[in-house]
Nucleic acid binder design. Structure first.
Length: 292
DNA sequence: AGGATAGCCTGCGGGC
DNA sequence: TGCCCGCAGGCTATCC
């Protein structure tokens, strides 16, 4: 369940291995795992050129928006990784990566220090994927512009602004529950099921509250909670529930301090009352006492 | 057009 | 022990 903190952690741990590295080769082991986007935004699945896999390029940036990670080469090409729900990107020194099943893409790199390294993208459930763009401009125009402000790096006022639009007194008050809204990447980018539940708990807001009934105070508190929950999780290396690993194979520890996620029917860490389950299309856990 | 829903996909845990 | 079922969820397509 990689969400923003896990992807950010992956970015931070990949950075020292990739910055300045030259892509010697790229292999797509599953043909339909990569989508090539053209200059006009048209998409094409199927056979992928070496160019699309960044071969021959020198990686000069790793950027992230929400849960998407973009690798850029000096000549402008971009490859975007979505981890989906079970995706992992592992880096290893040398020309051979540890073998595992479901390895869909493999890159051989020559790093700045002249040693060779291998980067493998594996994704058992295949909810993730690789997207190739001719330039950052096309990525921004066709995809990232549709995402809301990044939950971690956008100014707090923008997160608040996004939530305000769908709340009481906003431009288009929404009949959706706030839980569903938090999962909407067009509203705030990067929040998934784990951190939506955690943010709502911290803000003291019930997940089934309707957006249009939230007050401006609720919205301000929630925006701050989202920012804090995501930031804390990055510091802890993300949540490793089962699959998640950073580029070096290390797991995170944020799951140890979850207040509600995965704790249905257990005692609330704040008030001791029994946490409740609900299903807003996704499993949701909350405290009926602490959250109103 | 906003909002709800189905479906993609594999691994795993529970029940029998 | 082994099999079947249900569940996990990010995202897109589709329907109402």
């Amino acid at each position: 369940m990689p969400e923003l903190p896990e992807v950010e952690r992956l970015r931070l741990t990949l950075l020292p291995h990739l910055l300045g590295a030259t892509v010697l080769s790229g292999t797509l082991k599953r043909r339909d795992y990569c989508t090539v986007v053209g200059e006009d935004g048209a998409v094409q699945k199927g056979p992928v050129s070496e160019e699309a896999l960044l071969v021959g390029g020198a990686i000069n940036a790793l950027s992230r928006k929400g849960k998407q990670l973009a690798m850029t080469t000096a000549d402008g090409r971009v490859a975007v990784i979505h981890l989906g729900m079970s995706g992992q990107v592992l880096f290893s020194v040398g020309t051979r990566a540890p073998r595992a099943n479901h390895q869909h893409v493999e890159w051989l790199l020559r790093r700045g220090d002249e040693t060779e390294g291998t980067m493998v993208f594996r994704d058992p459930r295949r909810f993730g994927g690789l997207w190739s763009y001719p330039s950052m401009e096309v990525l921004e125009r066709t995809a990232w512009s549709k995402l809301g402000p990044d939950g971690l790096t956008s100014p707090l006022s923008q997160l608040e602004g996004s939530l305000r639009r769908v709340a009481q007194g906003g431009e288009r008050p929404s009949a959706r529950s706030i839980k569903m809204a938090l999962l909407d990447q067009a509203l705030i980018a990067g929040v998934g099921n784990i951190y939506a539940d955690e943010s709502l708990f911290l803000a003291g807001i019930r997940p089934d509250r309707l957006c249009r009934e939230l007050t401006l105070e609720d919205v301000a508190r929630l925006a701050r909670a989202v920012r804090q929950v995501l930031g804390d999780a990055v510091t802890k290396g993300g949540s490793t529930l089962k699959d998640y690993r950073d580029a070096n194979g290390a797991g995170g520890t944020a799951q140890q301090t979850h207040m509600v996620y995965g704790r249905g029917a257990e005692a609330c860490r704040m008030c001791g009352s029994r946490l409740k389950w609900s299903f807003q299309q996704r499993t949701t856990v909350f405290c009926g006492v602490c959250q109103r």
